[in-house]
Design a protein around this nucleic acid. Structure first.
Lengths: 337, 337
DNA sequence: CTGAAAGCGCTAACAG
DNA sequence: CTGTTAGCGCTTTCAG
């Protein structure tokens, strides 16, 4: 790789160095049909020599950028799983993965992000308007991760939040808990019928309690986006008269806050806590959190694979649902006598 | 926002709809000089109406893409801090942050990532060849995060690994520890003199022990990239004759593995453990890890700010060093009697 | 099998 | 103050 000063080397430089036309170079790069072996090797030598790299911008303008955009609403342990899976699926293909972090709690920033410079988009954005996504999907392939819609224009990858939540509630009820609280995200994330995972977990939580004849013991708490919110909300919950004997957290990050509050209240081991996502921390012996595994890595991998399929021409929508498994650990126990 | 089918709306569509030239539209978008208020509002209406968004690819080809690339070698809690800081610095500017995860432990993938489609690059890549970076920096502004070189062509942001490590060792030695092991990354990451944080932490660890007359008690262990490696290495350490009474982990993620192994060995509370980065988990009451804070969020913010300065024309290299603070928690105690 | 030419959507000069 | 023009680097017909 040679050291070039200033301006980047373009396809013209390569063509000149190899004594061929720009089109010829283009063909070599893309392994296109109709290049003589002799020319190919000459061009490849020139490319190597000059340290040429095709301009993504120019390629994108003309056709594809070979970039896949992964929109992440926030950075969390679960997102790490998704990213890991997507990385694996993309490895070995000519595509590169690019992450676009949503810049804050405001909506709509999604649109401006990867858009225009990627060949396809994986959206982990439970709050984007489905109609808007359908529109976007007419222009660029889209895979939506984590919502239970059945769209026509794009693919979806979801966890089985119904089964997962039922497993949680069955577990807690079987242990003998009756005062089971649910600590979830802000109301905007759980609007009934909006199809987000948290909306469904909440709905199933309610249903399960009702089925067990415990509807009046339903207790839903929400965290906000301030630091340690889950912890403070839990503390308040535990300080109430008839405090819950079990707390079902919307996901592991929330559960960590719950565990912190439980520990701070000196109730470690006597209040059952369940999380969701089975992140690495849940398995840590000092945390030892019962949690629902929903194959996060596999979800990311499936999403990326579906996107690649679309890029290869598939047009009919597909949907993939992850299997959930309740991983029981030390954070759940029967209610204190 | 109207629903467009298929092809995206271009600047020509807007120009036509507003009855002006494409150049006029371009000027409006960029707030450039020389547009009458009347025309401006007409154009803005057309933009709104058609749901026009400028093509990043086309802009990049011509000039700037308004994208800043943040190269992350791996997704971790510390990276989360960096990203958070960078996001804050970029908020309110016309720039968007884009993350490029290195695709695996192989080297060199860095180059192909954000490159070509971003106006500037923040590299959190301790293993990239500095000469190569200097070359890259002649073409696009670069801020290197986390390495103690004094380059000429780009900016750097680092933590004070000297002071941070000294604080750790002083703390442990003052507590009375003598058999202090250091659990760090693979050898490639700590090549002496290579300027990575881990190389320096290792070097200072050695120096401090030597200064304390304990050079022969130096014990360096390394984790590899397999899952739970830190945990297994720690278990081995603890099983040795004369096991260490304190373990200084290269960063918090390693420390979590150490804590797990210590807990598994039933030695919780009798083996001191120190981490680095002061991530969220370190502060969790169930983890309660003594750790060095190096202002991760501020580092990310500084890096992005420096990049923006470069984009505004600064050319002389700058460097910023974060302050380190040892946060003492329950994971460190005097050696067992 | 190879090269010439026409744009992709946008911006930056310049001309009106 | 507004419009015309000439590319940015690449891919893609279409002739040679």
């Amino acid at each position: 790789m040679s050291i070039t000063k200033g301006r980047a080397v373009t396809i013209s430089d390569v063509a000149q160095a190899a004594g061929v036309s720009r089109a010829a170079v283009s063909k070599v790069i893309r392994n296109a049909y109709g290049v003589s072996p002799a020319m190919r090797s000459r061009v490849e030598a020139a490319i190597e020599d000059l340290g040429y790299r095709p301009s993504v911008a120019a390629r994108a303008l003309r056709g594809s950028s070979y970039r896949l955009g992964l929109e992440v609403p926030y950075v969390s342990a679960f997102m790490t799983q998704i990213v890991e899976g997507a990385k694996r699926a993309v490895a070995g293909t000519p595509y590169q993965l690019v992450l676009a972090p949503a810049d804050g709690p405001e909506h709509g920033t999604f649109e401006s992000l990867a858009d225009g410079i990627v060949d396809g988009i994986i959206a982990v954005a439970p709050l984007v308007d489905p109609a808007w996504l359908e529109d976007l999907a007419t222009r660029v392939p889209v895979v939506m991760l984590g919502r239970h819609d059945r769209p026509t224009g794009y693919d979806t990858v979801v966890g089985d939040d119904y089964a997962g939540t039922r497993a949680v509630m069955d577990h807690l009820l079987t242990l003998g808990h009756r005062r089971i609280a649910h600590l979830t995200e802000a109301e905007t994330m759980t609007v009934p019928g909006c199809g987000t995972p948290h909306a469904i977990r909440l709905e199933v939580y309610r249903t399960c309690l009702a089925e067990a004849g415990l509807a009046e013991l339903t207790r839903v708490a929400r965290r906000d986006h301030t630091p340690d919110s889950a912890q403070r909300v839990t503390a308040r919950l535990l300080a109430q008269p008839d405090p819950p004997t079990a707390i079902f957290a919307g996901h592991d990050d929330i559960a960590l806050g719950v565990l912190a509050a439980v520990a701070a209240a000196g109730r470690r081991g006597s209040v059952a806590v369940v999380g969701y996502d089975n992140t690495d921390m849940a398995a840590h012996p000092l945390i030892d959190l019962t949690s629902v595994d929903q194959e996060g890595v596999e979800m990311g991998s499936q999403a990326a694979t579906m996107l690649l399929e679309r890029l290869q021409g598939r047009t009919e929508p597909r949907s993939w649902t992850a299997t959930t498994t309740l991983t029981v650990r030390g954070s759940t126990m029967p209610p204190a006598a």
